[in-house]
Design a protein around this nucleic acid. Sequence first.
DNA 1: GCCCCGGTTGAACGAGTGTTTAATCTGGTG
DNA 2: CACCAGATTAAACACTCGTTCAACCGGGGC
Lengths: 230, 230
Amino acid sequence: MTSAGVASVGRGGEFATVGRIRDAAITRFARDGFRVGLRTIAADAGVTAGLIVHHFGSKDGLRRACDEHVLAVVRGEKAKALTDGTGTTLLAQLAQVERYAPMVQYLLRSMQAGGELAATLVEHMISDAEAYLAAGEAAGVLRPSRDRAARTRYLAYQATGSMVLWFTLHGADATPEEFAALFRRYIDDLALPALELFTEGLLVDRSMLDEYLMYVPDPPPGDDAADAAR
Amino acid sequence: MTSAGVASVGRGGEFATVGRIRDAAITRFARDGFRVGLRTIAADAGVTAGLIVHHFGSKDGLRRACDEHVLAVVRGEKAKALTDGTGTTLLAQLAQVERYAPMVQYLLRSMQAGGELAATLVEHMISDAEAYLAAGEAAGVLRPSRDRAARTRYLAYQATGSMVLWFTLHGADATPEEFAALFRRYIDDLALPALELFTEGLLVDRSMLDEYLMYVPDPPPGDDAADAAR
DNA sequence: GCCCCGGTTGAACGAGTGTTTAATCTGGTG
DNA sequence: CACCAGATTAAACACTCGTTCAACCGGGGC
């Protein structure tokens, strides 16, 4: 417990402690969920609960700092790794890098719990995915959709939600190393059915689609407001 | 508050109170999550916290009773409504019935939190979906898959996970009436992209699928154990 | 050498939680 | 009527949580 009491003299000065607390919090939040107590995180970081609120103001402040850091890292890595239309591969690639696995786990935990980070990230994924889908259509490798925005939301929600659900049911209480391996197998198991569906579809004939297009034409213009949460 | 104190004399005898507590708990759990206090649920049902644990043993016992009741209702309604391969429509239809909306909300909340009910229900959905997919293939309306089990899991996780994620981000703190309307629109927004994808696929040519089939043949037999969580 | 200041601690506080317990009320039974 | 069993309540208990507070320590500036 007292082993880390002399950390303030190390290189990096005061930053070392706050950074250590933040990283410990990310890992602990990722593994145990956001209900974990400040004292547990403090013990992980070798400090005291009081010090955490001294540096971050409150538990919510700590949470916000974790969110911002994870978001910054993900955005930074986005430039280095390509994304398919679903947004899955970026996280999958990140999860394989040992250092980033806790952040991916934190991110999934955050999407499981809801909140601002989750909403922000999903919206970013969607706008990214829309650009990729548009590029794919322009390049002639993707079939154009009758409503690209709707297709984008659909694909993003399906891919992301499936990932979060899998995490909730099978990957929630895994250590970072286990998590990386589990995540890898989750992605592998997805590949064949996804490629089949994307290449060949599911239905043999077009009757259901054509019926839908006949009876439910363009979005009804008389629809009320309340378009915010779409 | 005291208006319900005389409920025990009504017809139905002792059941009235336990049933009322259970229903209040389902609604309250659904809207506020499982962290809600026993006293809040007790106030909703017009009773005392102590009485809840007297009847259900503990908060966990109450939770279990809610799980069992919701599961029983869903199973009972399953016989009346057909399910597509995704398992979405059954819940969608149920959510439209005002009486069942809280249960659907409870169910999504449960899938958001994980736990036994969620896992059980997903597994049931998957085995149901597999039967429907097999029937669809046999009837010639669905293209056969190279790995029907994998496709089933993939479709079920995508549809269910998407639904849960949408609930987490946009439908978590809605009243049952709002929830029914929101859910309806969620389903409507899905229809076109889903039908497009199922009918026409997404990719223009088969090269990605064929490459995958060339380089990643049948599941490698030398893979380690750890097949439990699939 | 003193002094001050930020980092840090340990203990305490107050508000919540689930659960326990003793007492009260009530309705049916001999 | 007496009595009992179950439903029900209000209060108390034990615990955890986030947060606050006073004190302490250790260097850098005057």
